[in-house]
Design a protein around this nucleic acid. Structure first.
Length: 494
RNA sequence: GUCGCCAUCGUCUAGCCUGGUCUAGGACACUGGCCUUUCACGCCGGCGACAGGGGUUCAAAUCCCCUUGGCGACGCCA
């Protein structure tokens, strides 16, 4: 049997991280098993669903690197057919028209609640003869179609891949609705039919659906189909342990946010895969391929995972481990993955120069490669790398006061000297530059720490960053001379 | 309220099925140090958990029961 799974989001306007994780697990499972991953959009609640809402989901999945093999299929296109399936059930006596009005139902529910009993069905309509039912329907009396849940003793049992044996006795299941009075199908009916039509072999979805599963299994049986295997995933909760929702928790829940905040999809993918699942080894950083290889749905946790973040704190806008994961991937991915992102960031800051892809290509790649290992996301190139891309950068005054000015006198003469020496170096490599500085320091009897700190500040205005010889190479001979001259004039003058 | 599920460091988790090797392992965060002429990385160390109570057993994080707590589902939404 070929493995076929599906991700069936309802287009609510954004891709929720919980949904993303569900999609991810489906994807991993499909790839692992050599199966097929189908994307189906459950766009049945027609008012809410716009093309943009659908695109947001598609874009989110593409960005994450969760590629589907078939689809997207739109449930709205098969809805008419679903009605037929429901009516077939009515003709076969497996479902019935319920002519009760909303008010009557509400009343019945209330009455039963008073007796501490749950509502299950309205015998008046459940047991109505088909001819009589047809007649009332013919007269135009509105009705819902309800499934006839078995009344005898017994239960529905299934083996959940994550939760193990799940059993629900018939007596706890009500006669759930299949069709609304306007004739349109309801969720439980539609999923089952679409999953049958798409020959889905494994349904992997959020645990909030586990209660629907017995009803759906009953439907499969009514339609004469073997139900698929089920795997329910634990939920992702917010730090306050409530269900993660956009309304309550803001943009952390939306996948797009991660892209917009400079996440590498590899990092997001990696982090999400480890939420509620782990391979049982001590490895934390995984490529997609490695994940596909080791993924085992049965190792999924049963308990919910909490997403630890604190709203309003820019340092902790999402889970810190996710942030750490991204930093890992900033150094780990191929440089080619970073380059276009760095370009976009520089363009946004007005620091881009087309020569970075032409005459200055080698320089640009060296610079980005040097910078990336100490950045935490894709959007820090312009901010932290600014001195390498423009002469207009800020001077760290505190460090200037503390580390440079106390040695003002010596530095005033030594700084231009060393700059000239370095600029005159024909090799201009990490090694040659270092040798020059070392020799100079010894000759002049100045501590390298003092000299380098001054150099760093003169060249970048910063007190921290890549190794000083990297800095010199990134800045280059010309700017080395001009910046040192300017620095001496402005800050070390008499 | 009813039904169901879950319960190991602050967080993500390993271990639980097949009791002993667990004085409970890893990661993030926090923290001490090393490396480094800066910062980050990296490396070494520290802090830190079996929800509580009963059983069963020579032995329980692991099995059973209860309590507590958390979560989910209870729609003519998906």
């Amino acid at each position: 049997m070929t493995v076929r799974v599906r991700f069936a989001p309802s287009p609510t306007g954004y891709l929720h991280v919980g949904g993303a994780r569900t999609a991810l697990f489906n994807y991993l499972f499909a790839r692992q098993q050599g199966g097929v991953f189908v994307l189906r959009i459950e766009d049945t609640d027609r008012e809410r669903h716009t093309p943009e809402a659908i695109n947001t989901i598609l874009d989110g999945l593409k960005w994450m690197g969760v590629e589907w093999d078939e689809g997207p299929f739109y449930q709205s296109e098969t809805l008419a057919e679903h009605k037929e399936w429901a009516h077939r059930l009515v003709r076969e006596g497996k479902a019935y028209r319920c002519f009760a009005t909303t008010e009557e139902l509400a009343q019945q529910r209330k009455a039963l609640e008073a007796q501490k009993k749950a509502w299950r069905f309205d015998p008046r309509w459940r047991d109505l003869m088909l001819e009589e039912s047809d007649r009332l329907a013919g007269e135009g009396k509105p009705f819902t179609v309800r499934f006839k849940t078995p009344q005898e003793a017994g239960s529905v049992v299934f083996e959940d891949l994550v939760y193990g044996r799940v059993e629900k006795s018939f007596s706890e299941l009500e006669d759930f609705a299949l069709l609304r009075p306007d004739g349109w199908p309801l969720y439980n009916l539609s999923v089952v039919i679409d999953d049958i039509r798409m020959t889905i072999s494994h349904v992997i979805r959020g645990q909030d659906h586990i209660n629907n599963t017995p009803k759906q299994i009953l439907l499969y049986r009514a339609f004469g189909h073997e139900p698929p295997a089920f795997a329910h995933l634990p939920l992702i909760m917010a730090s306050d342990r409530s269900k993660l929702s956009k309304r309550k928790h803001g943009e952390v829940v939306s996948v797009t946010t991660y892209r917009d905040r400079g996440f590498l999809p590899e990092a997001f993918f990696n982090f999400m895969a480890l939420l509620g699942w782990n391979p049982g080894t001590e490895q934390e950083v995984f490529t997609k391929e490695e994940l596909v290889k080791v993924f085992d749905i049965r190792r999924t946790n049963k308990s919910n995972a909490v997403f630890n973040f604190s709203e309003g704190d820019p340092q902790e806008w999402t889970d810190k481990k996710a942030l750490w994961m991204n930093a890992q991937w900033m150094s780990k991915v191929a440089l080619d993955r970073i380059l276009p992102e760095a370009k976009a960031d520089l363009q946004k800051a007005g620091l881009w120069d087309d020569a970075f892809e032409g005459a200055k290509k080698a320089w640009f790649e060296f610079t980005i490669d040097t910078l990336r290992s100490r950045l935490h996301n894709l959007h820090e190139f312009a901010a932290l790398g600014r001195p390498y891309f423009t002469d207009e950068f800020a001077m760290d005054d505190a460090v200037l006061q503390k580390k440079v000015l106390p040695n003002k006198e010596v530095l005033r003469t030594l700084l231009p000297e060393i700059a000239a020496l370095l600029a005159a170096d024909p090799d201009f490599t990490l090694e040659s530059l270092e040798a020059i500085v070392k020799e100079f320091g010894e000759k002049k009897g100045i501590k390298l720490g003092i000299l380098n700190a001054a150099l760093r500040l003169a060249l970048t205005g910063q007190s921290a960053g890549p190794g000083i010889f990297h800095v010199i190479i990134m800045v280059g001979r010309e700017r080395l001379m001009s910046r040192v001259a300017g620095f001496v004039e402005r800050h070390l003058g008499i």
